[in-house]
Design a binder for these strands. Sequence first.
DNA 1: GATGAATGAGGATTCATTCAT
DNA 2: TATGAATGAATCCTCATTCAT
Lengths: 223, 223, 223, 223
Amino acid sequence: MPDNPQKEQPRRRQARGERRIAQLLEAAASVFCTTGYTAASTNAIAREAGVSPGTLYQFFPNKEAIAIELGDRLMHEMREAYGEALAPVDPATPLEEAVGAAVDRFIAFNCDHPVFFALMHGPDIPGRIAEEHDALHATLASRIEGLLFSLLPDAPPADVTRTAHVCLGVYKAGLELVLAHEGAGRDAYIQEIKHVLIRYLEPLVGDRLGAPEGTDTATTRTA
Amino acid sequence: MPDNPQKEQPRRRQARGERRIAQLLEAAASVFCTTGYTAASTNAIAREAGVSPGTLYQFFPNKEAIAIELGDRLMHEMREAYGEALAPVDPATPLEEAVGAAVDRFIAFNCDHPVFFALMHGPDIPGRIAEEHDALHATLASRIEGLLFSLLPDAPPADVTRTAHVCLGVYKAGLELVLAHEGAGRDAYIQEIKHVLIRYLEPLVGDRLGAPEGTDTATTRTA
Amino acid sequence: MPDNPQKEQPRRRQARGERRIAQLLEAAASVFCTTGYTAASTNAIAREAGVSPGTLYQFFPNKEAIAIELGDRLMHEMREAYGEALAPVDPATPLEEAVGAAVDRFIAFNCDHPVFFALMHGPDIPGRIAEEHDALHATLASRIEGLLFSLLPDAPPADVTRTAHVCLGVYKAGLELVLAHEGAGRDAYIQEIKHVLIRYLEPLVGDRLGAPEGTDTATTRTA
Amino acid sequence: MPDNPQKEQPRRRQARGERRIAQLLEAAASVFCTTGYTAASTNAIAREAGVSPGTLYQFFPNKEAIAIELGDRLMHEMREAYGEALAPVDPATPLEEAVGAAVDRFIAFNCDHPVFFALMHGPDIPGRIAEEHDALHATLASRIEGLLFSLLPDAPPADVTRTAHVCLGVYKAGLELVLAHEGAGRDAYIQEIKHVLIRYLEPLVGDRLGAPEGTDTATTRTA
DNA sequence: GATGAATGAGGATTCATTCAT
DNA sequence: TATGAATGAATCCTCATTCAT
C-alpha cells in the first residue's frame, strides 16, 4: 500500500482549517468569558464563530479539548510575550522589583487575554477540577516555583512548593478584584496584590542574607 | 433585604413546611458540593431530599432562590455560631491573635459547611456574578470591614473597604488550598493564610500607634 | 427522618404513568418493526406515542431499556398466552404433533406480536449482540432446551443445548420466510418449517425406543 | 443488471481508480463487519481506507451503493472461487456428498469473507429489506434453486423455489451459530447444518427413484 | 482526482419548570 | 400540599453528503 501516505495521524491541515481553528478558539474564549466554562455550549461557540456545530467537531473532539487547546495556546503566548519574565531572577534583584514586575506582566497578560482567568477558575467543584484547568494551574505554579527557587535556593522544596501555591492563590484572588474594578480602583488593587506578596515573601527572602534592616519601612504603604 | 422572594407567605409557616425547607436546603447543599451550582439540577436536589420536583417548586421559585436562601441561612448560622467572632475587636488585641482566631473560626465554619465554599467560588463569571454569591460575598466583606474598622479607626473608609476585599480574597484563595490538602499539609496552609494576612495588615495596624518594634521578628516563620 | 417514605426506589407509579409506559412500548414496537432497532430513534418513538421526548425518558433511561422491557413483557405474554405450550411434553406425544403444535403457537404469537421478530434479529454485528436480544434469545433457547430434555432424557446435555440452538435458528429463519409471504405461500412455509424440524429431530427421538419403522413414510411430503 | 449507478463512467477506468475502489470496498467490508451496516459511517469507511470522504463519494454515490457493489463483487468472487461448486450436480451424486460439499464450500467462503454474513443478516427489517441484501439473497437463492433442479428434475418449480429458500434460510441460521463458536463447537454446528439439510432434502431426492432403503441409517448421528 | 472543510438536520439525553390529580 | 407526569427547548455530538481548492 504505497499510496495512502495520509494514513497516519499527522493531519495534513489546510490553511483554511488553521484559520477556522483560530476563529473557533477566539469564539470559545469569548463565550467562556461571557458565560463561564461550565455554562458555555459548543453550539454557542460555533455560532459565535459563525460556523455550524459540525465544523467545530471537525477540529475538536469535545468541549474540553477546546479549553485545553485554548489553555495551551495561552501558555505559549505567555511564554513568547513575556518570555523570561518568570525565568529565574538575579538574586540581587530587590524583591519589590521582582514581584512588581512579575505582577505587572501577569496583570497585563490577563487583561489582554481575559479567558485566562475564566479557565483558571476551573469548572468549580473543588477536588474534581478538570484537566485543562489543572494544566494551566500547574504550569503557572511550577513557573512561580522556579522563580522562588532562584530567590530561595536554600529553602526546603516542600516549602517552596507551598509558597508558590500561596502566591498563585493570592494572585488569582487579586486578579479577580482587579478585573472587577476600573481606573484608579484597579490600580489600587494592583498595588495591594504586590504589597501582599512582597510582605509575604519578604521574611523568606530576607533570611537569605540575614534580614536586611529597614525592610519594614520600605514596604509600609502610605495609601 | 427584607423581600426575599420566598418569604412572601403570610408568615406563620407550618412546622411541616419549615421542615421541608430545611430538608431541601440540606439536599441542595449536598448536591451543590458534589456537582457545583451550575451542574446541580433541581431534580437532583428534590431526589436527594426525597421529595418530588413539584414539592421543591412549592417552596422555591427557582434554582437561584435555593442558593440564595442557602446563603442567607449560612450567614445566619455563622453569626449565631461564631457570634461575636467577627464583631469589633478590642484594639489592644495583638494582630496575630485577632487574625489567627478569625481565620481559625472561618476555616472551622467552612469545614462544617462545605457548601459555603461551593457558593462562594460559585458557578460564575467575573463581572456577571450571580445574586447569591454577591450576597454572601458582600456580607462577609462588610463584616470583615467592620472588624478592620475597629482595628484601624483612622484609616480612610475607601482603604478599609479595599483592604477588607483583599483580606477576603486572600482568605478564599487560601481556603481553596486548605480544602485541597489534608492533615499536616492542611495545617501548613492554614498557617500560611494567617501569615499572609498578618503580614499584610501589620503595617496598617502598626501605624495606629507608631510602628511597634519587633514586629518583624514576631511574624518571621521558622518553617 | 420518618417523613420521606418515598426515598427508596419502589417508584410509586401512578395509573397514568402505567398507561404511558404501555403507550410508549406500543409505539416502540411499532417503530422497531418499521425501522428496525438500530435505526429507531427515541424521538420517533416519543412522537409515535404522542408525547414529548422528555416524557419517554421519565420512564426509560435509554433506548436499550425500552427494548429490554418490551422483550420482558413479550416473554411474559408468551408465557401467559401459550402457557405450557413449551413445557415438558409427554414423551408419548408423537413428535409431529409436538413440533407442529409448538411451531403453530410460535408462529401465531409472532404474527400477533411482530416486534418479537425485530427484537430477535438483534442489532446486527455477530458476536456483539446487545443484551435484550441475547435475553430473548436465551430465554427461548432454554425453553426449547427444556422441551427437548423431556423428549431426550438420555442425551448428553451439550448435545441437547446444541440441538436447541439449531431448532431455534431454523425456526427464526423459517419465521422470516413465513412473514415474507401471505396466504397459501405462508402456510406452505409453515409446513416446511415443521417438516425440517421433525426430520431433524426424528432420528434423535427415534433413538429413545429403538427407531420405530415407517417413520420415513410418515414425514414424506406430498406437496 | 448492467446499469449499476456507479458504473456509468465511460468504461475504461484508470487503474488507480480501480485500486481506490478496491481499497474502499475492503475498508467498507471491514467496517461493516465491525459495526454492522446501519451503524457504519461513510466517514469511518473513508478513514479506514485512508482516503478523504470526498474521495469516497467520487466513486460511490452513497452508502448503499457501497454495499451493493460489495455484494456484487462478493458474488463474483464466489462464482470464480467456488466455480462450479453450485453448478448442477450429477444426479447420481449421493445427497450427503452434494450437501456436504456445498455447505463446506459456503462455510469456507463465509469465513474468508466475513462481510458476506454481515450483508446477509443485514441491518434491516422484515418486509422492507434493502437492495443489496435482496440482491445477495436472490442470487444465492437462485443458485441453490439451480442445484436443486438438477437433483429434482421432476419437482414443480414453485416447490423447488420454496425448498431453495428454506435451504438458504437454514444455512444462514446455521452460519450464525457456526460463526458464534470456535474449534470443536464450530465443527459440531457445521455437522448439524449438514444434517438438517440432508434430512430435509432426503425424502425429496429419495422420491426420484423410489425411496432407497437404509437412508435413515445413513444419516443417523452418533454424536 | 483528491483533499479536507463545511453543512445542518438529526440523535440521545437532560433539565428547569409547570400541571393535573 | 404533595406527587409524579409532562414539557420542550437545549445540550453534546454524529453523519451522510456537498463544496472549494
